[in-house]
Amino acid sequence: MQDAPALRHGWRPSWAVGRIDWRRMRSWHWPGVLSRSLAAVLGGYAVAALAATALALWLPTSRAEAVLTGTMLSFALYAGAVLWVFAAASALRAWVGLLLPAALLGALVWLGGGAG
């Protein structure tokens, strides 16, 4: 992707100079942005919560330790999910990339008996 202003002023990152070219980033019209924001905030939280629960149920340590580990790690996973959502090539891919791990983690939680 061409980024002429950034090349001219090599010392500063592109965002300091040029605006993001919305036409080139096809899925970045506002429905796309809205969809991604929802995916990031709600979907990301769901993935993080499922991961925290799955780790709490399955980590091979004492249950208190497992719960603490899962809960503490969940925020990093949340941040990772948000980055993924906004880095994905399209909003659709972003959602799919959240739903797959969510399904997997959900299955783990269900098997671990945490759903009841």
């Binding site: 925290a52 249950r63 671990g112």
Partner: peptide, 21 residues
């Protein structure tokens, strides 16, 4: 930032405690 989230983590992420305990 991260430790700030951890101080209130049982409120933000109660699901592990919920499932196990």
């Amino acid at each position: 930032t991260y430790t700030g989230l951890i101080t209130l983590m049982l409120m933000y992420m109660p699901w592990g405690v919920q499932a196990v305990y």
